[in-house]
Amino acid sequence: PEGEAAAGGAAAGGAAAGGAATGGAAAGGAAPRVDLGAALGTPDVVAAASEPANAQRLAPHVAPPTSGAADDVRTTLLSPQFAQAANQFSSALTSGQIGSVVSQFGLPADVTAAANTGDMQAFFKALENASSGSEASKSQDDKKKDKQDDK
């Protein structure tokens, strides 16, 4: 609880500062503080993440196995340690200081820009837009492949 308390406190301060600096999204809607820890542990999210194809993508990123047991996607999402990390992430996100961290993951520039505003909703919207773009191109690739296979 020590770490979490500190992170929470920092987030409140950071959000206020971010709002003042950008004067944009954060000041417009009176968005409440959303903690991703609880949100990512809801049954909907657990079910979506546990679908075989998704679980396979997430598997390399779970905590390393110990002599006790190995975590899977479900145990990860439901563990308090993950919830703390997710809360820390949402605090950093709303403080508007996460753009450079996010950019390391090869996300498009507009997603990174949205992350920098400190507006969680804008960041998520940008992520959805970006993914629908790549989804479309991916399915086009698949079609091309299918055609090639036909030949």
Binding site: A48, A49, A85, F89, F105, L107, A130
Partner: peptide
């Protein structure tokens, strides 16, 4: 957990 969180957000997106 950062890579896990980013990947999960992408999956959900």
């Amino acid at each position: 957990y950062l890579p896990f969180i980013i990947t999960l957000l992408q999956i959900l997106a």
